[in-house]
């Protein structure tokens, strides 16, 4: 059913993909942001010709340029860069750029892999551009420019999907459950071209300067709360045997089937 993607997508759809520089969660090295790369993959699938790829950020950073090249390794000749200085909000330049371009569809990731990572950008853009906003999509089933509607699939927890009809133009953030991005090929990455647009109006993010940023602390696992009334109860709660130390082993087929079924029901997976 999911694979039944009707190819009713109209021609000449104007699509823009917003990409950012990601960061590997373990090595913290710059890389293609996973969700943005998926957004680009979806864009390349739907409108390979008319796709515009936008990056708003500083170009002074050589690591960032490397990552932009990696995006171009997905088979892109040109990438538009809005040269926004560091520590500056990218919403305003992007807004102006998108107002000029008037795309039918804007795709982006759910949230950035560095910085504040609030995931607000698509919402701010949709509010300012008066476009619909669909979060966490996995696929676009069809875009019909004549009726002005598109059908998209949204990711729900545990692999479930919801079908949503949305007015054009719209912004969508792409979920990790969307198709994995294609491999970045070194050759086309090296030969791609960065078209750098200078940005006139920017907004300095003064609020962020008050913030203290530190490496993420590990959050303690929540312990079972014991509302003990007596010292003995508290003692018992503190020394109680931790559940599930070793598993139960059952040798009788019937008995084990019952036990399995009970466990499945207890875990509410049936």
């Amino acid at each position: 059913m999911l694979k039944d993607i009707s190819k009713t997508t109209s021609k000449n759809i104007k699509m823009s993909v917003l990409i950012s520089v990601g960061e590997h969660p373990l090595s913290a090295r710059p890389r293609r942001a996973e969700q943005d790369a998926r957004a680009l993959e979806l864009g390349l699938k739907l409108a390979p010709e008319s796709l515009k790829i936008l990056y708003a950020g500083s170009t002074g950073d050589s690591a960032a340029t490397e990552v932009l090249k990696e995006y171009m390794g997905m088979g892109i000749d040109q990438l538009e860069v809005l040269d926004v200085p560091p520590k500056t909000d990218v919403t305003l330049p992007l807004l102006e750029k998108l107002q000029q371009d008037c795309p039918d569809v804007v795709l982006t990731g759910i949230r950035a892999e560095n910085g504040e990572s609030s995931g607000m950008l698509p919402y701010l853009l949709s509010e300012q551009l008066n476009m619909a906003m669909v979060p966490a999509i996995t696929d676009i089933l069809c875009i019909d420019k004549t009726t002005g509607f598109a059908e998209v699939l949204q990711a729900l927890p545990r692999g479930q999907r919801r079908k949503v009809k949305v007015n054009l133009p719209f912004i969508a953030s792409v979920d990790m459950a969307a198709a994995a991005p294609r491999q970045s090929a070194y050759g086309s990455a090296m030969r791609g071209h960065l078209k750098i647009d200078p940005v006139t109006r920017t907004m300095h993010d003064a609020e962020q300067e008050q913030w203290q940023i530190s490496p993420a602390q590990a959050r303690p696992k929540r312990l079972k709360i014991v509302k003990a009334k007596t010292a003995a109860d508290r003692f018992k709660a503190a020394t109680a045997k931790v559940q599930g130390g070793s598993g139960k082993v059952i040798y009788d087929n019937k008995e084990s089937a019952e036990a399995i079924l009970k466990l499945l029901k207890d875990e509410k997976v049936l």
């Binding site: 892999e113 560095n114 504040e116 990572s117 940023i213």
Partner: peptide, 8 residues
């Protein structure tokens, strides 16, 4: 922040 890598 930073997709779970930093605390702000």
């Amino acid at each position: 922040g930073g997709a779970g890598k930093t605390d702000i």
